[in-house]
Simulated assay, not measured.
Amino acid sequence: MNPQKEFGLGVVIGKFLPPHRGHHFLIDTAISRCAAVVVIVCEKPGDPVPGALRQAWLQEMHPAADVRLIDDRYDENDSRVWAENTIRWLGRAPDAVFTSEHYGDAYAAHMGCRHVMVDQPRQAVPCSGTIVRNDPFAQWEHLSPPVRGWYAKRIVVLGAESTGTTTLAKALSEYFKTWWVAEYGREYSFEKQSRGETNWRTEEFMEIAREQTRREDLAAREANRILICDTNSFVTTLWHRRYMGFDSPALNDLAKHCRADLYLLTGDEIPFVQDGLRDGEAIRHEMHRWFEEGLIGQKGSPWILVRGPAETRLAQAVAACSFMAS
């Protein structure tokens, strides 16, 4: 045992549904006092946040701990059963159990180890998993970046060429004081054009969709409750159709996993503006129809059409988004 540590092996066990600052305080306390710490994440079927995600989040936030996931099929009030299983999972009895609950006394006693109670009255961190699940936005400051990324609402601005998507996305991010994710496909197209390349391949659209999603997921971790996205992988499927002339089943399957809590479709009634990259003025209205048809076919993702001058569109979008950011 590390001579500077009070205990050898410490255990922290719970649902962590979801992890919050109180859990981090508990685990950090165990790490500070133990040479080694095992965190046991309990998962039941139907949990609102998958156990594997909770395990990954805790492992990311506490790299010094060994975070394990177990199938919770036991009576939560039977401390003896939990103690016997903990010894089996660890291969030995721990030296200390760290909890913020009174069950820790009986649980530790059955393993013959110490129970260290940490902030049981929730004074250091006034938070709980139930409170977070009921209103994650109200508890935002108690959530770590990966958990914020899970709960952040994603607003996707989309539309045909030169319909003001980027203008609206920037304006929304400024209004809600949050992050926005630029259109990676535009960046990719600019670089492609600068190399003198004109032919497209399906693999390029797959790359664009994956990178757009990666950037979106990273930005969601830093978002202020909602994230504004200037396009997403669903939109990439329509640009594939526009340039390739057909749909890609593989790309469509990829897009089925994109997250969108609200789509804002920009109207095509405004004048077309050439910026040096755009080449779709002749089919802009047809593409707008594709977007409308695609959104109608989306299941579970609401959408609205915003039209008019920039300030009118912003007002329409803010009204649609405000209930998410409250």
Rank of each mutant, 00 (worst) to 15 (best):
E197S: 08
S194M: 11
V97T: 15
G308A: 10
G46I: 04
A108S: 14
R80C: 09
F190R: 15
G112V: 07
I70L: 09
P146D: 00
W150E: 11
A317S: 11
Q55D: 10
I226G: 05
S79W: 13
S326H: 12
G185M: 07
M324Y: 14
R259F: 01
A169I: 01
P126N: 04
V12E: 04
E286K: 13
R114A: 15
R122T: 03
E183L: 02
R33K: 15
L238P: 06
W89K: 14
R54Q: 04
E187D: 15
A64M: 08
E43D: 15
G245L: 14
F137W: 09
R54I: 03
Q55P: 02
E207N: 06
T213Y: 01
C42D: 02
R201S: 09
V39E: 08
G280K: 09
G159K: 00
K192N: 01
D105I: 11
P94D: 07
P94R: 07
T29S: 15
N77V: 13
E204L: 12
A255E: 11
S322I: 11
V147T: 08
W180A: 03
P63R: 15
Q212A: 04
L251Y: 01
I304R: 09
C229H: 03
G300H: 13
L254A: 10
A223F: 07
G91T: 15
M206F: 04
D230F: 00
D268N: 12
D105N: 04
K192W: 04
Y74K: 07
A36H: 12
D261M: 01
L305R: 15
V41M: 11
W179G: 12
D105Q: 09
L143A: 06
A152D: 00
A93L: 06
Y175T: 14
H142K: 02
A282D: 13
D75K: 08
G276V: 02
R313S: 14
D279Y: 10
R284I: 01
E161V: 10
G245A: 09
F7C: 15
L168Q: 07
A325Y: 04
R215Y: 06
D75V: 09
P136V: 06
P18S: 11
A30L: 08
Y175Q: 14
A65E: 05
T236G: 09
T163R: 12
L69Y: 04
V49A: 00
R68N: 10
C34F: 09
V273D: 10
F234R: 11
R284C: 09
P48I: 12
W290A: 07
V156A: 06
G8I: 12
Y243V: 01
E141T: 08
P145K: 02
V37F: 08
R54E: 06
D247F: 05
H115R: 06
F205S: 00
A320G: 05
T165I: 02
P94E: 05
E203T: 10
E141R: 10
G8N: 10
G112N: 02
R225C: 03
L9E: 11
S32P: 13
P94V: 02
A282C: 06
G14K: 09
D78Y: 12
T86P: 01
S233R: 01
R154Y: 01
L277N: 14
R313L: 03
Q59S: 14
D105A: 08
S248P: 04
S233K: 01
P45S: 05
K170Q: 14
A223D: 02
P146C: 03
